[in-house]
């Protein structure tokens, strides 16, 4: 398993290079100008100088490798200098076109919000989905199953920008229960502020959680149904094992194999897939950062955030494969 993991990680390097190259090419093909967002009073010569200073006029391939060098050499060295007090020579850090501050600093600032809101919603989604899937499958075609299927279909098919706005309309505008905007500067230091934190998290978490739960519960249900009719379940019943053990040990353990894989594969969407929801609730996380960067033609920012998503996807694919091997004794990688 270790050898397999290492081999996969090594193979991931060319994959990542290729992905980042394609992303870079696509971004560069789009006719964006890093100075477009600046005030119109800036004369063209100055604009040209700004472009020059940003390295925007270099050949495409040079720009790509400069970016790559900044990401894999400069930034880690800078980080080590900060962390361990070493004094490596570092060049220019990667600068955001929009804000003129280092790209990675901005990303690091945004990650906690995303992890808090989107990560919680993913966990909430799983907590809802797994029991829902189990009960739906065990009582297939019951009223519970029908309602569960209906809710899953809604969660699946209604986009988050709709459910988000709908929730804001109902719970913030009409009922006034929850704030409509997520306040990132809010500090939790007392029970009251903790309660406020929960209140402001409920809506974005539920919007994303419902969406995730819809998907996972469908997988859970299908996988349970697959396994419930297997012969080994009948064997377990014939052994005189308690019904609870039959379902929760024999069936659930086998059913979790595909579900765990789906959960792991979807995890990168915790970072990327929440773009819209973060926008709706004004959570200044990674998704919002990416959208603003796209609007501002901020090439290094868009490139870096997208590549981080790509890294996560490749990484979680590997994790899913390794998990598969751990969960299913029939699969061995060595």
């Amino acid at each position: 398993m270790l050898n397999y993991t290492i081999r996969r990680l090594i193979l991931a390097v060319p994959t990542m290079l290729f992905i980042s190259f394609v992303i870079f090419a696509i971004i560069k093909l789009s006719p964006s100008d890093p100075t477009a967002g600046l005030p119109l009073t800036i004369p063209p010569e100055v604009r040209e100088k700004i472009r020059e200073a940003l390295g925007f006029n270099e050949p495409f391939i040079v720009q790509f490798f400069l970016w790559l060098k900044q990401l894999v050499v400069t930034e880690p060295l800078y980080w080590m200098n900060q962390k361990f007090g070493t004094e490596f020579e570092i060049g220019q850090r990667m600068i955001s076109y929009q804000t003129r501050s280092p790209v990675l600093d901005l990303i690091v600032q945004r990650i906690p919000q995303t992890l808090w809101v989107v990560g919680t919603s993913y966990i909430v989604g799983i907590i809802i989905a797994v029991p829902l899937g189990i009960i739906s499958a065990y009582k297939q075609y019951s009223v519970f199953d029908q309602i569960g299927t209906f809710i899953s279909m809604i969660g699946f098919s209604v986009p988050t920008f709709f459910t988000g706005v709908l929730l804001i309309l109902i719970f913030s505008v009409n009922l006034g229960w929850f704030p409509s905007i997520y306040d990132t500067t809010h500090v939790v230091d007392s029970w009251g502020s903790f309660w406020y934190q929960i209140k402001q998290m409920i809506m974005p978490v539920m919007v994303l959680g419902l969406f995730n739960a819809a998907q996972i519960s469908r997988y859970m249900r299908a996988s349970m149904l697959d396994n419930l009719t297997q012969d080994y379940v009948r064997t377990a019943r014939a052994k005189g094992v308690k019904e609870q053990t039959v379902v929760l040990v024999h069936v659930l353990r086998n059913s979790m194999i595909p579900v765990v894989t789906v959960i792991a594969l979807n995890l990168p969407s915790v970072f990327g897939g929440a773009l819209i929801t973060e926008q709706v609730f004004q959570v200044n996380g990674l998704g919002q950062l990416l959208i603003l960067a796209i609007q501002g033609g901020d090439v290094p920012m868009v490139q870096t955030v997208t590549v981080i998503f790509a890294v996560l996807i490749v990484l979680f694919n590997l994790i899913a494969d390794v998990l598969y091997g751990m969960l299913d004794p029939r699969i061995r990688y060595d």
Partner: peptide, 20 residues
């Protein structure tokens, strides 16, 4: 409680054993 007294041998020896 009665199950220990009566048991079954199944047709498909692959499917009747929990693969995990």
């Amino acid at each position: 409680a009665t199950r220990p007294r009566m048991q079954m041998i199944f047709q498909d020896p692959q499917a009747c054993l929990n693969p995990r």
